[in-house]
Simulated assay, not measured.
Amino acid sequence: MPEIKLDAETRTEFGKGAARRIRRADKIPAVLYGHGEAPRHITLEGHQTMMAMKHSNALFAVQVDGGSQLAIAKDVQREAIRGFIKHIDFLVVNKGEKVEVEVDVHITGESAPGTIHVVESQSLTIEADATNLPEFVEVSIEGLEEGANVTAGDVTLPEGAELVTDPTHTVVTISVPRAEVAAENEDAAADEAPAADEA
């Protein structure tokens, strides 16, 4: 994914009151940090930023003070009920640098008939090039039978990415719904019970 441009301006007001004023103006307070430099407090245009944050692990080119700084979003604080963005922490990155990020797990395929899958881990932690971060990883459960487990180490990662999550960590399990198991047990018990006229 190409860099996403974000227009920003240096922020000089701080505190809860200042943050509320910024959000009332349809803007978002944020901070740029990393590489041993002092944090840079900035303000972002609200709508542009909301649209940009729809992409997981995007690489941003933050335009501020006449320059451009590459960064990734490390922490996005949202309002609990309405979901609007309250604040963003951006980690400054350089091309060629590797960073740790969380990637969502997307399930593909269908497990064996009569089974269901349970996602034990919604995301994995990986290390990858800051300029080539995946939005998600795919986990295929096609044809998997009851009792099958997919671990983090089984997941195919994009080229150049390395797994940080424990490779033995379970990502998906395949099972038969309990109701069906109970029904099968009842049927089996009925088959084994003697008929009334045989008693």
Rank of each mutant, 00 (worst) to 15 (best):
K98G: 00
L91I: 09
F84P: 03
G17S: 10
V103N: 00
E135L: 00
E45H: 05
S123W: 01
F14E: 08
T43V: 15
P177A: 03
G17W: 03
G147W: 14
E45Q: 06
L59V: 06
A183N: 06
G66Q: 04
K16E: 13
T43Y: 03
K54D: 03
G17Q: 05
Q63V: 11
A199M: 12
G34Y: 07
S123C: 01
V171A: 00
H169D: 14
R40T: 14
V119W: 04
E127F: 01
A199Y: 15
L70F: 11
Q63P: 01
A30F: 07
S56K: 15
D129M: 09
V64G: 04
V64C: 11
E198H: 10
R20I: 13
R23V: 04
V62M: 03
S121M: 13
E120N: 09
H55P: 08
F90Q: 02
V76K: 13
K16D: 13
D26V: 12
M50I: 08
S121H: 12
H117F: 15
T49N: 01
K86H: 04
S111G: 10
V137E: 00
V171L: 00
G83W: 00
E138H: 09
H55K: 11
Y33C: 05
G143V: 03
F90D: 02
L157R: 03
H35F: 10
S175K: 12
P134E: 01
Q63L: 12
D7N: 15
A182V: 08
L124W: 06
L59S: 06
P39S: 11
T168I: 01
E142S: 10
I28Q: 05
V171C: 00
S111V: 11
H55G: 10
D191F: 12
L59E: 04
D129A: 13
S121V: 01
I85M: 03
K5T: 11
A130N: 02
M1I: 09
H87D: 13
N149R: 14
G147P: 12
E180W: 03
G15Q: 07
I174G: 00
A179P: 00
E198F: 13
T108A: 15
